[in-house]
Amino acid sequence: MDKPTFERSAGISAPGTEGTGDPPALSAPAVEIRQLNFWYGSFQALFDIDLEIRRGRITSLIGPSGCGKTTLLRSINRIADRLGYVRTTGSIRVLGQNILDPSVEPVQLRKQVGMVFQRPNPLPLSIRDNVLFAHRIHRGKEAVGRSEEDAIVEAALRKVLLWDSVKDRLHQKALGLTLEEQQKLCIARLLPVKPSVILMDEPCSALDPAGTEAVEELMWELRGEYTILIVTHNMAQARRASEETVFMLMGRVVEHGPTQELFLTPRHRATADYIEGRYG
């Protein structure tokens, strides 16, 4: 059977960066944030954020509660828009295009920028329908054969290392799976629409150590093909499961660098104190 693979589509990338997706593109950041300020009503949550997230890498966002890391994450797929009372200035370029521009269609953005939540949130549908949900939404009325859908489901579930354990019960409710399996399914359902960036908001905080390890393994598996940005409270996780780390404090980016470097030789006092557990 001809199995589809999830090579990245051109999507909303700027002219010149699409195509092969090979080394020249690697130098261009997947997400480029410039002078981003963010308000919930009159409360400012983010101040002058400047940040470049490298393509194909795993970048972790760390910092104490309330430092704005989740807000930053949620502004990259504009899911915070639905709250209705948020305001932003500055720019967030995803694959070269400013997603805060009024001409950007959030639906297209969310196709390119997938999100995994803190608590696994598979939809109350079957496992198969969960994997196909986004695909069906984005393809509209275009008819797709059952065998083609089967291939999509299999490829996505294989990619997240879930196929073998669920292949005989694809029509059962996804909510009957273990939390670890649910979270893997939540990652799998992003893949059929070929996102470029996957945002993860503390994806392991509801999982036991075995589940955490499995999801971290999966992140390494997806690395390269997808740019992964993960918010975590768990510094050990940031250290073992990410290549770059961003440390945030009080709505600002304090330090950003290769993970080993940031943990071994932090440049700022605040970073050093935080990773040593003096506060937070």
Partner: peptide
Amino acid sequence: RAFREACWSLGATRWQTIREVVLPN
């Protein structure tokens, strides 16, 4: 609310969310 957020984050519109997830449940 988690179901709605899941739908929105996958790019579903409000109506798609209502039709596919909220109403059936």
